[in-house]
Simulated assay, not measured.
Amino acid sequence: MKVYKDIYQLKRVDNNDFPAIKELFWKVFKKKVTLKYLQNKYNTSHVGVKYICSIAYCDEIPVAFYGAIPQKFKNNNEEIYVAHACDSYTLPNHQRKGLHYELAKLAYEIMKEHDMKYVYAFHSENTYFSTKKLGWKEHERLQRFHVKVNTLPIGKGLNKLRWTKLYDVFFSQKVPAKALEKLNSEHKEKFRLKFDNDFIQYKNSFKSHYCVQIGECVFWLKIQAIMHVGMFYAPSAEALQKALKKLKRKAFFLGITELLFQVDQHSVMATQLQTITQPKESWLVGYLDFDPQIDLKDFIFTYSDLDTF
């Protein structure tokens, strides 16, 4: 427990803090999330580390939170820990008092204790400016590709009514071993998120994801009004073009109006997608390194890395 300004109690999050995090989320955003969703999202025991977040209380009332999740990245030779900063919110009456800065610093100390090599985020405008004081650096932007589907927007209605479980009838949540091998086949010389059955099980504990195999192509995706593709494998651009025609046909009958890809601009996925449609700029990847040997040019990021994917 760390006392700040003789008013605030700052601490590392444990399982007892999640009711407070849920309460804080509602007060700041006026959006409801379930306790189970929060507990499952931050229960990253599948990587061997969990709860690298920090929370601030004032007279036992939760007032600010700094959320991050540990991830394992791997290449051909080694595995390393990194941290993905994903949530940060403070009650309006307690803003501009340095709480975000202090909670971030506390979280970074926890990350270093667990040998995290760096912390990174997909920047929004707010996070971009809030990390400047913390000494963050800039990497590169992801690219996003929009593939439109001319159909009735039934998917948007299903999402609004929270009837998305309907998609479980049409798509499988299981990722067969051969499909998993294909999804991990590109850029083995670079560090990528360790995408294995433990990770898939973790993601499906708080979001529904699906594996779609079309010919030799594999797509790992989620559906929320539109079809978000986290990562995919295609042996060639031509194979991808043929597979997307069939995937768009599935989307058409389900009332899904768009397929959205967000990929590292240096990835094979980006090169293949550029033969189909032109990219637009997506999130800027920002980071703070704890290991001077780290170079983000040695890393490939995907949409699947995002905490809310």
Results as ranks from 00 to 15, higher is better:
residue 173 Q to S: 15
residue 135 G to P: 03
residue 98 G to C: 11
residue 289 D to Q: 13
residue 125 E to K: 00
residue 32 K to T: 06
residue 213 Q to W: 00
residue 98 G to W: 06
residue 91 L to C: 05
residue 101 Y to I: 11
residue 235 P to F: 15
residue 248 K to C: 07
residue 231 M to N: 12
residue 262 Q to I: 15
residue 52 I to L: 10
residue 66 Y to E: 12
residue 37 Y to P: 01
residue 293 Q to R: 11
residue 49 V to H: 05
residue 1 M to R: 07
residue 118 Y to Q: 03
residue 58 C to V: 12
residue 270 A to K: 00
residue 299 F to V: 11
residue 219 F to Q: 00
residue 298 D to E: 14
residue 104 A to Q: 02
residue 295 D to Q: 12
residue 179 A to M: 09
residue 249 R to P: 00
residue 240 L to T: 04
residue 223 I to R: 03
residue 292 P to S: 09
residue 215 G to R: 01
residue 153 P to V: 09
residue 184 N to L: 13
residue 121 A to G: 13
residue 53 C to D: 12
residue 229 V to C: 13
residue 97 K to N: 11
residue 52 I to H: 00
residue 126 N to F: 14
residue 216 E to N: 12
residue 44 T to L: 07
residue 306 L to E: 14
residue 145 F to W: 07
residue 160 K to L: 13
residue 211 C to L: 09
residue 138 E to H: 00
residue 144 R to H: 14
residue 5 K to W: 00
residue 97 K to P: 07
residue 146 H to K: 14
residue 258 E to V: 05
residue 37 Y to C: 01
residue 85 A to W: 01
residue 214 I to T: 04
residue 232 F to K: 01
residue 28 V to C: 10
residue 163 W to C: 14
residue 68 A to L: 12
residue 221 L to M: 14
residue 21 I to H: 01
residue 44 T to A: 04
residue 128 Y to A: 12
residue 38 L to R: 00
residue 127 T to P: 02
residue 125 E to W: 00
residue 30 K to P: 00
residue 263 V to L: 05
residue 95 Q to E: 13
residue 160 K to Q: 13
residue 230 G to L: 04
residue 84 H to D: 03
residue 18 F to Q: 06
residue 298 D to N: 13
residue 82 V to Q: 01
residue 40 N to E: 14
residue 31 K to D: 08
residue 119 V to D: 01
residue 233 Y to R: 03
residue 71 Q to V: 03
residue 196 D to C: 02
residue 110 I to L: 08
residue 97 K to R: 14
residue 9 Q to I: 08
residue 167 Y to M: 04
residue 231 M to T: 13
residue 279 P to V: 14
residue 103 L to V: 09
residue 160 K to A: 13
residue 159 N to A: 15
residue 29 F to H: 11
residue 173 Q to F: 05
residue 260 L to I: 15
residue 77 N to A: 05
residue 8 Y to L: 05
residue 66 Y to P: 00
residue 91 L to K: 08
residue 308 T to Q: 12
residue 57 Y to D: 06
residue 137 K to E: 10
residue 201 Q to D: 06
residue 254 L to W: 03
residue 102 E to G: 06
residue 93 N to Y: 08
residue 94 H to K: 02
residue 249 R to C: 02
residue 133 K to E: 08
residue 90 T to M: 07
residue 137 K to L: 10
residue 298 D to P: 02
residue 103 L to N: 02
residue 130 S to E: 06
residue 267 S to N: 05
residue 200 I to W: 01
residue 222 K to T: 15
residue 211 C to T: 11
residue 22 K to W: 01
residue 299 F to A: 04
residue 7 I to A: 10
residue 199 F to V: 05
residue 220 W to F: 15
residue 24 L to K: 07
residue 54 S to T: 12
residue 58 C to S: 12
residue 274 Q to M: 15
residue 46 H to R: 05
residue 251 A to Q: 07
residue 160 K to V: 10
residue 296 L to Y: 08
residue 253 F to K: 08
residue 303 Y to C: 07
residue 241 Q to G: 03
residue 140 E to T: 12
